[in-house]
Design a protein around this nucleic acid. Sequence first.
DNA 1: TCGTCCGGCGTTTTT
DNA 2: CGCCGGACGA
Length: 677
Amino acid sequence: MISLSGLNDPQREAASTVDGPVLILAGAGSGKTRTITYRIAHMVYNLNMNPKSILGVSFTNKASKEMKERVISLLGKKKARGLTLATFHSLGVKILKEEIHLLGYHKNFSIYDTSDQMGIVREALKSIKTEKTFDKKQILSKIGFLKNKGIMSEEFTDSPYFDEDDPYDLMVDYVYRFYQDKLKFYNAIDFDDILNLVVRLFREFPEVTTKYSEKFQYVMVDEYQDTNPLQFELIMGLTKTHNNLCVVGDDDQAIYAFRGADVTNILEFEKNFPGAKVVKLEENYRSTMPILDLANKVIQENKNRREKSLWSKMQSDVNPLLWLTADTDHEAQVVVDEIVQHQGNGGHLGDMAILYRSNTQAQPIEDQLRLSQVPYTILGGQKFYEKKEVKDLIAYLSVILNPKDQIALRRILNIPHRGIGNVTLEKYLALSDEKEISLFDALELDPALDPRRADHIVKFTKIIRTFQEKFRHHTLPEALSSLIEEINYLKFVEKCYDSIKQVDRRKNDVMMFVESAERFVKYNQAHATLKNFVEKLLLQDSQDDQDEDEDDDVRKNEVTMMTLHSSKGLEFDTVFLVGMEEETLPHKRVLQLGEDIGEERRLAYVGITRAQQKLVMTYCKERKLYGRKTARHKSRFLNELSNHFTEQDRTTFGHLTEEEEKNYKSSFFNNLIDGLE
DNA sequence: TCGTCCGGCGTTTTT
DNA sequence: CGCCGGACGA
């Protein structure tokens, strides 16, 4: 038996209600993951359900991995076998691999990321002449928005999001259709399509919907407040034959509306699923009461939310702090100073995090940390597969898998330089248009279109063909290394950069890429095909990947820096929430557009509720923005809450005794000297 | 074909 | 202030 006695009353109620629709409203730090992992374990162990009939969906690999690990620790590996614990996208890819032929795609489809998408939008804009110039980014983001709302290209003009008087919308209509046609021609799909096409399958082939709904008799969805209409439709499809759906979420932590998430999914759960059981988890096991008091007060101002109030058994007389600082550098200085002191007292740096609204705020803090020689990691930032060298190599692999992938082909056609530039490319594009064949087929059809380039073209297409074979008959790392050698890629990298440091770093990225292929083979053995490898690279963040061999129960002795968005789900003993200013949090853009400030307030709420023991918020009198100094004011989110935190003016030394002031100044001076050395 | 210069713009982001 | 993308020139 798996005992549920370690859960509190509402948790146990949620974990033991397995049939029919269930909504678990789980406040921050209320043991949400614990509840769902026990629920799964209970279903498999106590109720003897087939693991294969259970599906758990989350948004990120991290969340999905955590769920997997915790279920395994309850059930053991053997009993957990057969469970599907996936992200929306990995589930989508799984389904598409089986069914995408129904929509006229080949199963070797490529997956496009933002920069690939941008390439097609650029092409679309070039294909139509206008006086007005359009911003590709804006157009692409509207297309992405529409896709996440479940609106297909042919439906746009009939949707409420179309305004016939808006020139942008007219252009979006054209580009969206062009874009989808091209993707199909290239046998490619973008990230949004992974779900979009599954939904289209469900709409057009009800028997497919039934198949998957019958396969997954019990469906669970994590972070339900962040689901968009597309994901909602997917969930509806998966549960249509049984209605056994358990969703977990917190409307107060909905922070992804900007990418199409619709909080009404969670607000109107009972309407969509009549007879639903609703369970509220309000006991918080993370933070002290003073921190929760502040959090409750901040979020109370939001309208249209499910009323709940977090409480904790942990009392404390340590109030949250708010520091006024002079400017961006000073803000960084006082924060890092506090960290150094904590370190000096034997504190662990892994217990501390610095959270901010936008990445631009990270730079001065990073500088200061380096200056004070405090080890740190920045979460987020560039992903491994986005590095230029890695992208090049992935493009080779993509073409080898799917020669129709024109975006990848164009990327590598002249990398390393082989004298096939724009002029030659245009000729072949014309040929492929005329004959209605793919660009790659055009290259093979008439390599001597420009006789001076013929040798190079033949050589190039031969490489692709040869390696299609090689990847079939050799191991992944062997074939990959051989490819890198064949195209002389490292030599190319050397020529691209002047500084040795740059060259070394880039070469290292190439080596890491080969290593990741080795790891992939080690972990996946028979399933370590080229296709699965490329897929995994795109669907899985490298940050998880690199940690795979390490024990990540132990947090490194490093301060963690990240945006408020990426902090969701995490907790730290001490949290610095920097930039609590008007136009930073809430962000200027949101204020200008005059729209939903609630999401910004929820971001503040998420930040505050990350802290277990100590919360330090800061704001500046003056902030350097784009090289210009701008006056700043305290965030409205802290208005009228001054009895819930202690404000200290750090621009003076007023909060210190004379002795402390002297020590402070000299220790700061010493740090500075140390940093320079 | 490739490199350089100039102008514009500047949240958050998983997959 | 710094990055990126487009235009233009060698």
